[in-house]
Amino acid sequence: MNKVTNYISEAFEELKSNVTWPTWEEVQKLTIVVAIFSVIFALATWGIDMLFAKAIGGFFNWIKS
């Protein structure tokens, strides 16, 4: 149990002393960038899904005929 406590204590100390944390302004800007990228990626995924759905639907309609 002592090893676990020591590990957690050292991890917190490293986070406080060795990690460079971003400023609040950087966090806000990067959050906006991630949100915009997520929306663009979701729209691209939706568009490709719709394209494949129509292509597969057209293929099966062509086979039925």
Rank of each mutant, 00 (worst) to 15 (best):
F12P: 00
I36K: 09
T23K: 07
E25W: 05
F12H: 13
I36S: 04
F52G: 02
T20K: 15
I48E: 09
I40Q: 09
G57C: 01
S38C: 06
T45R: 04
I8K: 15
E25K: 14
I32W: 01
N2L: 11
L51R: 08
S9H: 06
G57H: 03
T45P: 01
Y7K: 12
T20G: 06
A53E: 14
V19C: 06
N18D: 13
K3D: 14
W24P: 00
I63M: 10
L30A: 06
Q28I: 05
F12V: 10
A55Y: 02
W62T: 08
I48K: 03
T23G: 02
F52Y: 13
G47C: 06
T45G: 10
A42M: 14
T5Q: 14
N61L: 08
N18R: 15
K3G: 07
N61F: 03
W21H: 11
S17R: 13
K64N: 08
A53K: 10
S9D: 04
G58F: 03
I63S: 03
W24F: 08
F12R: 12
I8Y: 10
W62E: 12
S38D: 06
N6T: 08
N61P: 01
F41W: 09
N61S: 10
E13I: 08
T5F: 05
S17A: 10
N2H: 15
V34T: 08
S65R: 12
G57D: 05
S65F: 08
A42V: 09
I56N: 06
I8D: 02
L15P: 02
A35P: 00
M50C: 13
A55C: 07
E26P: 01
W21G: 04
F52Q: 09
F60R: 14
N6D: 13
V19I: 15
K64I: 04
L30F: 08
V33D: 07
A44M: 12
E26T: 04
E14I: 11
A11T: 15
M50W: 11
I48R: 02
D49E: 09
W24S: 08
I36N: 05
A44Y: 04
N61D: 14
M50F: 12
K3F: 04
E13K: 08
L30P: 00
K64T: 04
T45L: 10
D49I: 10
G57Y: 01
V33H: 02
M50K: 15
V34Q: 05
G57I: 00
K29V: 05
F37C: 12
T31P: 00
F52R: 10
I56H: 02
K16Y: 09
T31C: 06
I40P: 02
F59G: 07
M1S: 14
N18Q: 15
V27F: 01
K16T: 13
A35D: 11
Y7W: 11
F59S: 09
L30C: 06
N6R: 13
W46C: 11
F59D: 12
S65V: 09
W46T: 11
W21M: 11
L43R: 01
D49S: 14
M1E: 14
I8G: 01
E14Y: 12
K54T: 06
N2E: 12
V39E: 02
I56G: 02
F12D: 09
E25V: 07
Q28T: 05
A55W: 09
K64D: 09
S65Y: 11
V27A: 03
K3A: 05
G57A: 06
F41V: 12
A53V: 06
